[in-house]
Structure formats: C-alpha cells, structure tokens
Amino acid sequence: MAEMTYREALNRALDEEMARDDRVFLIGEEVGEYDGAYKVSRGLLSKYGPKRVRDTPISELGFTGLGVGAAIAGLRPVVEWMTHNFALLALDQVVNNAAKLRQMSGGQLSVPIVFRGPNGPAEFLAAQHSQALGSYWMHVPGLKVVAPATPADAYGLLKSAIRNDNPVVMLEAELMYAWKGEVSEQEFLVPIGKARIAREGVDVTLITYSKPIRVVEEAADRLAEKGVQAEVIDLRSLRPLDEETIVNSVRKTGRCVVVDEAWPLASPGATIAHLVDSRCFDVLDAPVELVSGEDVPMPYNHTLELAAQPSVEKVIAAVAKVLYREDV
C-alpha cells in the first residue's frame, strides 16, 4: 500500500488508462500546459503530447459535445470540467446527446465517455462556484454517476469509468484533492454501482457520498463515545444505486439518516430517503432523516457558508431524532 492524495490517485488512473489504451484522451480547459486547474493532469501533457492531452478554449458546450462525437466515432474521451458549475453550459450535450444517442439509435451507437471535475462547495467561492449538482446527472437515464470519497475509490472508479462503454459522470471536489489515503500499488478496479460500508454498526445507518463522508465519520466517532454504533455507507455510485447494500444495512439497524450536501428538493438525498422509506418501512423504528445543504444559494461569508452545509452537529442531531434520545 502507498499513501497518496486523491489528486494523485486520479492522475495515476488517467496515466495508466492512457498507457493501456491509445483511444483514451483527456480534453478540457487547462488540462495540458497548466497541468490541470487542480493539477489532476500533472505531467500528462509531457508524457502523452498535445494530441492526447488537449487544452481547449473556454467552450464547455463545444468541447463537451465534441467529446460525445469522438466517443460515438470510436474514441474514449475523458472530458474534464473545471467545475460542475460550468458544466451547466454543457448540460444539453450530456442530457440530450450523451445519455440519448444509444437509445435513439436503437442500440447502434455507444458513448464511452467520462465527464469529470469538482462538484459541491469548497470555501469562499460564493453562489455560482459552490453548487452540489449530483441530482442533475443522477436524474438522467442513460448516464452513470460515480462519486468517490477516498483516493482508492477515486483511482478504481475512474479506471472503471474509462473502461465503461457508457457515459459516466464523476463527481470530485476541490477540497478532496488533497485528501490522503492508502491505495494499493497493485492495479485494481472499483465496480460502478457498488457502495462501500465505511464503518460497521448496529444502531443507525448513516448514508452519504463524496465530501460529506468526513463529516459523517466524525459524527460516527462522537456517537461511539456516547455508546451509539453507527453504520456508515459511502454510496460511491449514485447511478446505478446499490439498493441492496442500503436496504440490508437499514434492515439491520432500523434507523437511517441520509447526509447530502446538495439542496434538499429533488436531490440524491431525498431520493435515497424515499427508497429507504418504501423498501424498509416495516423495519423502520423512526422516519428517515435527511441532513442536506440548506435551501439557499451559497453565501460568500465563511460563517454563513458553513452554516449552509451539513455539519457534525447537524448529523448528530438527526441521529438523536431517529433514536428518540436527547442524550447524544
């Protein structure tokens, strides 16, 4: 095992897949000479050259659509969005083309493409640069959506995404790029659609994905000090969703809190809470709680922006509610 950052893990996955398959290329703003806006593609231009590491103009709609065209014509593009906020300019190409071309062509075309970049709030970036937009992609049949929360999963899921014959959207996060974790030196893949039980427990199931994993793990530590054994599920994939891992856990604990930094309406968290309600109603000892981002555009002020996001305190309060206990 080697310790590496999330950023390095993504870089290693890109490097290995580009070495393995000539059809794989990286395209996006600042991916080449700048080494990536967040340095994910560091060194790849000098290793693979400008044909395969392609700096683009600031044209999200154009280069995302170009990626889709290259995919249907036999290549395997990795499209880097500087952030998912900017991907809104390319929403049409993802929703109307990448997700639809196979079905509209009666299975004649396949669209093996990865769209990836940071999603969700970082710090001090205000309303237009701090949005958790997973539901935009999770909503759409024809797409797959992955959201790794550890360096090992970032590595293994990016490799799986590149090898997948479907469009895969990957949610990363600015603040996660420096996170460190153990990653096997042996090559491995992480399957799309399989959740990870990050911590075993029997009293309550905490379900999350992506960056809030750290908030949830800290909450679980504090709950353990109070004698509450929380099970933590890191979904890793939002589409397809690993319903069995979710259901099996809630069947064991009988209580569930979903933690999602997205806004609460029509969100991944709301969908998962509904899923648990409908599939585990007979075993639930309390209604499912959702800890989401506040239903507001993100403010710049740091105190306010922290208040807008899931926190350890909010998670513990939700757990106290589903346990009907005031002493946690």
Partner: peptide, 29 residues
C-alpha cells in the same frame, strides 16, 4: 432520430444546433 451506423449516418438530432459539436467530435476522431 434516424441513424444508420453501417452507412456512416450519425443522425438525426432534435435539439437545434446540438449536432454541430458532435459532428466536430466525429471529425476529431
């Protein structure tokens, strides 16, 4: 949405202008 991959006809796009970046991607490939 007519498509005929065998005859290199790649559609068939219903969103005005959305096929244009896709066509550039085919040329890129």
């Amino acid at each position: 949405h007519l498509f005929d991959v065998e005859h290199h006809f790649f559609g068939g796009n219903g969103i005005v202008g959305a096929q244009i970046p896709v066509a550039a991607g085919v040329a890129f490939a």
